[in-house]
């Protein structure tokens, strides 16, 4: 454990912040531009993983375990969210034979 935290701190903190921010914004752009529900969903997971990386880096730099515990919370909750989300996507696919989110425009005035 000690070795890992030392290894993490070999890279300057700013690099972690930059990397996480880039991954996070790739995720946001994916959510906003992609039209396939699964890919939108993957982009959201990318956003969550960017957060996990950032929390781990902060946690190692501060020598405080709380950040890493929070990462476990995120992983567990994200898994629950995946279960529900994929079920919803399967349900849509069964009814429409497609998971293109542009098909979802029936609820308009």
């Amino acid at each position: 454990m000690e070795n890992i935290t030392n290894a993490i701190t070999l890279v300057p903190l700013n690099h972690y912040i930059l990397l996480s921010s880039i991954i996070f914004f790739i995720g946001i752009i994916g959510v906003l531009t992609r039209r396939n529900a699964i890919i939108v969903f993957m982009s959201i997971e990318l956003m969550l993983n960017a957060v996990n990386l950032l929390l781990t880096a902060f946690s190692a730099y501060r020598g405080d375990a709380a950040g890493q515990v929070f990462v476990f919370f995120i992983m567990a909750v994200a898994a629950a969210e995946v279960a529900v989300g994929l079920a919803i996507i399967v349900m849509i696919y069964r009814n429409n034979n497609s998971i293109d989110i542009d098909l979802l425009n029936k609820l308009k005035n």
Binding site: S20, F24, V40, F41, I44, V51, V84, I88, L104
Partner: peptide, 26 residues
């Protein structure tokens, strides 16, 4: 179906943003 998928995608998107905010504040 449409309501569920929209709610789900928008909700988890917001969760991602919330978590990024929490990480920065941490």
């Amino acid at each position: 179906n449409e309501a569920a998928l929209k709610y789900f995608l928008m909700g988890s998107f917001a969760t991602g943003i919330l978590l990024f905010g929490i990480a920065l504040i941490y």
